[in-house]
Computed example of a mutant assay.
Amino acid sequence: MKEAKILGVSFSTLGFNATVSDLVARAEAGQRTHVVTANPEVVMIAKENAGFQSILDQAYVVPDGIGIVYAAKMLDKPLHERVTGVELVDALMQEANTQGWKVFLLGASPDVNRMAAARLEKDFPGAKIVGRRDGYFSADEEQLLINEINAASPDLLFVAMGVPRQEFWIAKHWSQLNTPIVIGIGGVFDVLAGTVKRAPVLWQKLHLEWLYRLLRQPSRWKRQLAIPRFVGAVLIEKWGKR
């Protein structure tokens, strides 16, 4: 797999369809893969947290965020297409629907987790939701949870705990998990449950989903501060190479 390094984070350069095909092949071969859907916020967390950076160094990182694509263009890196978490989940669930794959849903609130599972069962009846658990559990419950996941033997494990908690959790238990494809998907369960609406298609085409989310959820403004910091860091790297 070819990679493009953006501010120290190595991204897969595969386009969306090629990424889906690659992950399907990995799942069928039983090739265990930790997928991280990374946007500028994720990159900036990695710059400030060596432990998080080491997790990304071992993961299959895809560019979730148009800012990553723009940065790649500025830095002359061979990365040209977003691979968003919500679309990746949909594509893999379509494959699960066709192949009869087993899926485990971990994370979000109890209600959101339940509604997301109901939505997936309705839209992808050929897939098997073999287990689910919300993200509210104690450290003492983690081993029982790992045992439950392994007993269900899913082909796909979607972990929706938010960044960076989900990535740290996956990395912590990686040696125990037997699932081929494990993906940290942030707030995708909220979208599936209908508690958070995705930006309209026009906003998506204009690459303004981040602004739509900010207008809908003003409380996100602190998180959005990562964007100008990311742009500044990219410019410094670009100018530093001249």
Rank of each mutant, 00 (worst) to 15 (best):
E3P: 03
A4Y: 06
K5W: 00
K5F: 05
K5I: 12
F11D: 02
F11R: 03
S12W: 05
V20M: 09
V20P: 06
S21C: 11
D22F: 10
A25R: 14
A25H: 09
R26S: 03
A27S: 11
E28M: 09
A29T: 09
G30T: 11
T33F: 13
V35M: 01
V35L: 04
V35S: 02
V36E: 01
T37G: 05
A38F: 06
N39V: 02
P40W: 05
V42S: 06
V43G: 04
V43E: 05
F52G: 00
I55F: 02
D57C: 04
Q58F: 13
Q58N: 15
Q58Y: 14
Y60N: 13
V61C: 12
G67L: 11
Y70V: 14
M74N: 08
L75G: 07
P78L: 12
E81F: 04
E87P: 02
E87M: 04
A91T: 10
M93I: 08
E95A: 15
A96L: 12
T98N: 08
W101C: 07
K102A: 07
V103K: 11
F104S: 02
L106R: 06
G107I: 07
A108W: 08
P110H: 03
D111E: 14
N113L: 11
M115N: 10
A116W: 08
A117D: 10
A118V: 06
A118D: 13
E121S: 14
D123P: 04
D123N: 14
F124Y: 15
V130M: 11
V130G: 07
G131L: 01
R132Y: 10
D134K: 05
S138Q: 14
E141R: 13
E142R: 08
E142D: 15
L145E: 06
N147Y: 06
P154T: 02
L156G: 00
L157W: 06
A160V: 02
G162T: 09
G162K: 09
V163S: 12
P164V: 10
E167M: 04
F168Q: 12
F168L: 14
K172C: 00
W174L: 13
N178C: 12
T179H: 08
P180T: 10
I183K: 01
G187R: 01
G187L: 01
V188M: 03
L192N: 04
A193P: 00
A199K: 00
P200W: 01
W203Y: 13
W203K: 01
W203E: 05
K205P: 10
K205A: 12
K205H: 12
Y212E: 04
Y212A: 00
Q217H: 15
Q217K: 15
Q217G: 05
Q217Y: 07
W221D: 06
W221Q: 07
K222R: 15
R223C: 08
R223N: 09
R223S: 13
A226S: 15
A226H: 15
G232C: 07
G232A: 14
L235K: 14
L235R: 14
I236P: 09
K238G: 04
G240W: 12
R242A: 10
R242P: 14
